[in-house]
């Protein structure tokens, strides 16, 4: 029972990382309507920029802010250079998807070229584990969960209570109609890339902290877990992505108790495929619009 609680606790930490990334990706998918294979590499990029800023002498938390800003900028630039021209041409989803694969090559290998292929470490660590009730958390875990919770709450308030949030939701619902209502959808798309980039940078830093190593492939390897979360939640549905992250995070940790942990990734994918086949609209009941 104790082991189970600990596994659930680890799952919560995983879920915090996955949720940040999944919400960012879900936001982007809901607005742009294509899935981004380069998103995992954006995560690595954010983590590496943070690493560089930290190595240059900045404290850790300001470094994360620098990493987030850098990744947001990367998102905006890639939208501007790669995706906006294609979306103007009304390219098919398939084409955009292949473009994101190309972008993934570029970002991942540019990281290799700049920072080298070997694993790096942050100067800070997650600290020693503490017993909190039945759970086993490190101070780093708690900060990570807190940061994830705060950011997602802030995003929720932003989406629901600001004019821009309303514009964003309208664009994701129907961009032609939004444009007809006078919403500058181009600007909304640009800011969506920025926000999703920032969220995924924080997720990337969390991932590198938790695994205590940062490689150029760190984000890419996590990408499919993030896909799993957004598929479970229903593609393009931001709140579903949070639920999906929770399910995937806890599932992979708890399943490691019963089957060899090397297969937990395969198990997560199997669940994803089964859900995609049986409930393509995700776990949550659909509200008219299913992605």
């Amino acid at each position: 029972m104790n082991l189970l609680a600990e596994a659930v606790g680890f799952g919560l930490v995983d879920a915090a990382v996955i949720a940040l990334a999944a919400v960012g990706l879900s936001l982007q998918v809901s607005v742009t309507n294509f899935i981004n294979f380069a998103y995992g590499d954006f995560m690595s990029f954010g983590a590496y920029v943070t690493y560089a800023a930290n190595a240059a002498g900045l404290n850790f938390f300001p470094s994360v802010a620098v990493g987030a800003a850098g990744t947001g900028l990367l998102g905006v630039i890639s939208n501007w250079v790669v995706f906006r021209p294609l979306m103007r041409r009304k390219s098919r989803t398939l084409i955009l998807l292949i473009c994101t694969v190309g972008l993934s090559f570029i970002v991942q290998n540019a990281i290799v070229m700049i920072w080298g292929p070997n694993a790096e470490h942050y100067s800070v660590t997650v600290g020693n584990a503490l017993h909190l009730g039945p759970f086993l958390f490190t101070p780093g875990d708690l900060i990570l969960i807190g940061v994830a919770f705060t950011l997602l709450l802030a995003l929720h308030l932003f989406m629901q209570n600001t004019k821009f949030g309303t514009a964003l939701r309208a664009t994701s619902n129907n961009d032609d109609l939004a444009q007809a209502c006078g919403i500058d959808t181009g600007r909304v798309v640009m800011w969506t890339w920025a926000i999703s980039g920032m969220l995924c940078a924080v997720a990337g830093v969390g991932l590198a902290l938790e695994t205590n190593s940062l490689r150029p492939t760190t984000g890419f390897n996590e990408l499919f877990v993030v896909f799993g979360a957004i598929i479970l939640g229903g593609i393009g549905r931001v709140y579903g992505a949070m639920l999906g992250a929770l399910v995937i995070g806890i599932l992979t940790e708890v399943s490691a108790m019963f089957i060899s942990p090397v297969y937990s990734g395969a198990l997560a994918f199997t669940v994803v495929i089964v859900v995609l086949l049986l409930r393509p609209q995700g776990l949550l009941p659909s509200r008219g619009r299913s992605a």
Binding site: I106, N109, V112
Partner: peptide, 21 residues
């Protein structure tokens, strides 16, 4: 850094892919 050439190849493929599309 030992992986520069391989990474450069992948970056090149990515750029050519996007430019071609």
């Amino acid at each position: 850094n030992g992986a520069l050439v391989g990474a450069g190849r992948a970056v090149l493929i990515g750029i050519v892919l996007i430019v071609v599309i």
